[in-house]
Computed example of a mutant assay.
Amino acid sequence: MARRVQGGASIRRLFRSLPDAARDEIATVLDDGSREIERQMVARAPRRTGALQAGIKRRLRRNSLSVSIGITGSKAEKRKLFYARILDLGRKGQTVTANRRNPGGGTSRYTMRVRAIGAKRFVTGRYSDARAVLNNRLKGVWDRILRRVAGGD
Score class of each variant (00 low, 15 high):
86 I>E: 12
27 A>G: 14
29 V>W: 03
26 I>Q: 00
51 A>M: 12
81 L>Q: 10
54 A>K: 14
84 A>E: 10
45 A>M: 12
32 D>M: 04
75 K>T: 04
137 R>V: 01
80 K>Y: 07
36 E>F: 02
127 Y>H: 09
129 D>R: 14
98 A>Q: 14
146 L>C: 00
37 I>C: 05
127 Y>G: 09
88 D>S: 03
2 A>D: 10
94 Q>K: 15
152 G>T: 03
120 K>F: 09
124 T>W: 03
136 N>H: 12
53 Q>S: 15
18 L>P: 02
81 L>F: 09
120 K>A: 14
142 W>A: 00
105 G>I: 06
77 E>D: 14
95 T>M: 11
81 L>Y: 10
124 T>M: 09
127 Y>I: 04
14 L>V: 00
17 S>G: 11
152 G>R: 11
52 L>F: 09
62 R>A: 14
129 D>I: 05
77 E>N: 07
148 R>T: 03
31 D>N: 13
30 L>T: 04
28 T>L: 04
92 K>M: 10
9 A>E: 12
131 R>G: 06
25 E>D: 13
125 G>R: 05
108 S>N: 11
91 R>T: 05
60 L>I: 13
28 T>Q: 06
107 T>Q: 15
76 A>G: 05
40 Q>K: 12
49 T>G: 10
80 K>F: 10
91 R>K: 10
122 F>T: 04
78 K>A: 11
8 G>E: 14
59 R>C: 06
55 G>H: 12
109 R>A: 03
98 A>V: 15
14 L>Y: 10
7 G>Q: 03
144 R>P: 00
89 L>N: 05
129 D>C: 00
41 M>T: 07
98 A>S: 13
70 G>M: 08
61 R>G: 11
145 I>Y: 02
87 L>N: 06
64 S>N: 11
78 K>R: 15
84 A>T: 04
71 I>H: 06
92 K>Y: 09
150 A>D: 08
76 A>D: 11
70 G>Y: 07
62 R>V: 12
8 G>A: 06
129 D>W: 03
117 I>C: 03
42 V>N: 01
132 A>P: 02
47 R>E: 14
128 S>D: 14
96 V>D: 07
77 E>P: 03
47 R>F: 05
81 L>N: 08
